[in-house]
Design a protein around this nucleic acid. Structure first.
Lengths: 402, 402
DNA sequence: CTGAAAGCGCTTACAG
DNA sequence: CTGAAAGCGCTTACAG
């Protein structure tokens, strides 16, 4: 492998000079530069980034922790994130918890070993809040609360619940059935984060749309039921749930589920000869491409992946930049604690009050056009704050609502 | 940041000793080990992997280059790859070419800068073969020929074409319409790789299923047409193609396309009141989850993602292991060229004849059960060989064929 | 503007 | 079994 030393030798200069040329930094005379560049070309020199990584104590790589990418929701999210990170000069390491028997632990470990500059946590975790808070490295959570000081970003699921309720109530639905994950999870997991709940949060923000929707339906006197579909991303579970639903409730006239669940309901409904949307309305939550490839173009609550990713990325960038001061490389910096600068200890700053809930005051828009711009701008404006950021969702009518 | 030096000082030993303990290597007396471990615990010491990476000249990270992960096909492939790599102790860096304006160049660059140990190339590329061959670092190609010496892995698309033909002919289809990418690509891209074509390869192995299918239909005297759908992964293009298809050919009684195209055809056919599969059969190529979430459970030619990923991963592992001898780190090894060992120059070995086409002699199975085991075993058996490895596909009947 | 030196944090021969 | 030393390949103050 040809290194800087080889180039320096060949060009008859010092490695320092080569380095300056390579990085296009400092002052180098034109002929020195020419000599070095010629040598680099002749030797086919390509700098070894590992050395720079060590010196800079940075890899420009961030981890995205998801259950699996083989699920349209996380594929869409991850895709958007990768895009946003790429624009910020960051590479995306794919961290799938279904492939890691220790769950996310392995990736957190890599984060601590400095192989990644930060992570986006978008998978389940059973750890108590102080586990996350004590890590002391850049982490942002997607659609879940991990602990004080850990920024989180999620869609406005309460708005989502309200939008669904409005559509169903306005169109005269009389019996709504929801298909979703094991209902027990709602509380089991919430137990870990009492303080979060006290703040009005729950571990699984997604759950909020169920709760909000049920609340609104109750208020309007519309009957509703819930069918459990096993773990997310388990196709068979949703297919079974779709069958169960029609077997159990022969007067159902509206179904609400994730894209996949909704798509499988359409499939089952077609088999059973339902007329959609006349006899049966179906609303999908998420709005991935699966909703477009279903038997009918699904009416969806669309999560704004672009906006979510944008906010997540800028949050994480901020955390990384903030942490940069501390363990900086180069020269003398083996100090212990004194260096706490103006930035403060970002890792453990209180979260709750800084929370800026964007979209909360927004009119519940029924529009195909994205609110990404707004959300992104809000995020940018409050980029220093920690806590929860909420991104609006939109109802996009398709062929499955009336 | 607490480093080995700090631990050594605290434990009253040398850094060498700490290193030995950390790596659980060499001989360390029990009390030395105890002292060190105590110090590590007290200081919360976590080794910095960047230093190891530099020394080992390895990151245990591989890049997976795909057009975009927001497409079920590449999502499935990438997911399977990540799984396989994880089992081999390798992390997966997500490299999406739609996010990189320079296409794959940026990632090849990272490969050369040693930020990745190797890459799986599964996206379009316009580079001539010698570009790839001259890179001299571990690369395997998925579903495309990149040049001599670059192993490639793909599904047996000719078998796929034959399986479709058999199904359609046996069931009495009279007018088959295919929906696929721009037909011009078939040849434009092939021009870059004349020698590959001479070997019976084409740049886009996927194309082979069209060609084989058309050939078989011709032989059986079944009429067929082709509708172009624009770039892959462009939803709108497929939706438009589905409409065009029915507008142009009112006697069509069979459609063949990718999962997405097929799903959108089902959607359009339902709108137009076709009875599937009585009046119209639909066969999807790929077999991702989209095929299951369509309006009807699609009959598919299933690509064996698990087997493909397994072969790709072991190929790449082999290349990485083979390359290990050359630029090895540690001690004196700044030699230039003499070190060419028994492994030979893997990067430029001839490819053609070593090609082991597994599955070629297999009976065209009509089975739901995977042939992954076979393919994987074959691959293992021939793991030293370069060239093309072909993985069988299966026809999985659904609700859209008769 | 250029070079010698120290350093990034860890590893591995190599003497004791 | 343990430690001092050299080294991974590149960077950045710091003298000239």
């Amino acid at each position: 492998m040809v290194g800087m030393r080889d180039v320096a030798r060949k060009a008859g200069v010092s490695v320092s000079t080569v380095s300056l040329v390579v990085n296009n930094a400092g002052y180098v005379s034109t002929d020195m530069r020419a000599k070095v560049e010629a040598a680099m070309r002749e030797l086919d020199y390509i700098p070894n980034e590992l050395a720079r990584n060590l010196y800079r104590d940075r890899t420009d790589t961030v981890g995205v922790i998801v259950p699996t990418i083989a699920h349209p929701f996380f594929a869409s999210l991850t895709s958007a994130l990768q895009h946003e990170f790429a624009e910020r000069g960051l590479k995306t390491l794919l961290c799938s918890t279904v492939d890691a028997d220790k769950g996310e632990a392995e990736y957190v470990d890599m984060l601590q070993r400095h192989m990644m500059d930060g992570i986006v946590m978008a998978a389940h975790t059973a750890h108590p809040a102080d586990y996350w808070t004590s890590i002391g490295r850049p982490i942002v959570a997607f659609d879940r609360y991990l602990g004080p000081g850990i920024p989180s970003v999620d869609s406005d699921h309460e708005q989502g619940g309200r939008l669904i309720a409005r559509q169903l109530i306005d169109s005269g639905a009389r019996h709504v059935v929801l298909i979703g994950g094991p209902r027990a999870q709602f509380h089991d997991l919430a137990a870990h984060v009492d303080d979060a709940v006290a703040d009005g949060n729950t571990t699984f923000p997604t759950v909020r749309y169920y709760l909000t929707l049920e609340h609104e339906l109750d208020a309007a006197g519309v009957r509703h039921d819930y069918v459990e579909a096993g773990e997310v991303s388990e196709f068979a579970g949703y297919a079974a749930a779709a069958r169960e639903l029609f077997d159990r409730f022969d007067d159902v006239d509206a179904v609400v589920s994730s894209d996949t669940g909704a798509a499988l309901c359409v499939q089952e409904a077609i088999r059973r000869g339902f007329s959609i949307p006349r006899d049966l309305q179906i609303i999908a939550y998420d709005g991935t491409y699966v909703a477009d490839a279903a038997g009918l173009r699904l009416s969806v609550i669309r999560q704004d992946f672009a906006a979510l990713a944008s906010v997540l990325a800028s949050r994480l960038s901020d955390c990384i930049a903030a942490g940069a001061g501390e363990g900086a490389a180069g020269g003398a910096s083996k100090s212990s604690a004194g260096a706490a600068g103006a930035a403060g200890d970002a890792g453990t700053a209180e979260a709750s009050d800084a929370a800026a809930v964007s979209g909360d005051g927004l009119a519940d828009g029924v529009a195909g056009d994205t609110a990404a711009g707004d959300a992104t701008d809000n995020a940018a404006a409050q980029s220093g704050g920690f806590g929860e950021t909420v991104v609006p969702v939109t109802f996009v009518p398709g062929e499955t609502t009336r």
